[in-house]
Computed example of a mutant assay.
Amino acid sequence: MSANGPGSLLAQPLGRPSAGRIAAYLGLLVLGAVVGLAGALVQAAWFPGGLLLALAGAAGLFLGGAYATGGRGGAVAPVVGWIVTVILLTTARPEGDFLFGAGLGSYLFLLGGMALAVICATVGAGRQPRSGAARLGK
């Protein structure tokens, strides 16, 4: 590695995130919660189609957030909002009411959404070097 070159991307300091980036992450977190709530309602209403629609909406938000922010943090922020909302909706209230039924669709929504979250956070747009070279160190 050259002493004058930009060095490894992992060795670069990240710096402080801007106010716009923080606002984008908070917006994606809220959107993740909204998509989780909407998906919980839709997947139970129209079983096969609603489940696919709910999972497609979640995947679109997760992957779109990664590409919109240019990093994997854009996929993680809506995932956090989605998971917190879905987990809170699965808990029973003292009256015995809860939003999710104990059916196959609910479990597929939970597990499928978690699998999509991992896939989208892994495949999502990672930070790329700013130089025009195809390989680092060139």
Rank of each mutant, 00 (worst) to 15 (best):
G126E: 03
G15L: 03
R16V: 09
F100K: 07
G113V: 05
L111Y: 13
G20H: 03
A121T: 12
L10F: 03
V30I: 10
L53I: 14
L37W: 15
V79T: 15
L88W: 13
V35F: 10
Q43W: 03
I83S: 07
A92D: 15
L99R: 13
G57R: 09
L99G: 08
I22Y: 01
G103A: 09
F47R: 11
R72M: 02
R127H: 07
L99T: 11
G32T: 12
P17A: 05
G124Y: 03
G71K: 00
T69V: 03
A24E: 07
L53G: 13
A38E: 07
G137C: 04
L53E: 08
V76M: 06
I87A: 14
A44C: 08
A66P: 02
R21Q: 01
A115G: 01
G112S: 06
A3G: 12
T91F: 13
W46T: 15
G60E: 03
G64E: 01
A19F: 05
A24I: 02
G57C: 11
G20D: 01
L31D: 06
L63E: 07
R93H: 10
G60I: 04
G57P: 15
S2P: 14
I119A: 12
V34D: 07
A117Q: 05
Y67F: 13
V118L: 03
L55H: 07
Q12C: 00
V80I: 14
V76G: 00
Q43E: 05
T90M: 14
G81E: 05
Y107H: 08
G73C: 03
W46S: 12
A45T: 14
G20L: 06
M1C: 12
P13H: 00
G101I: 08
G36M: 08
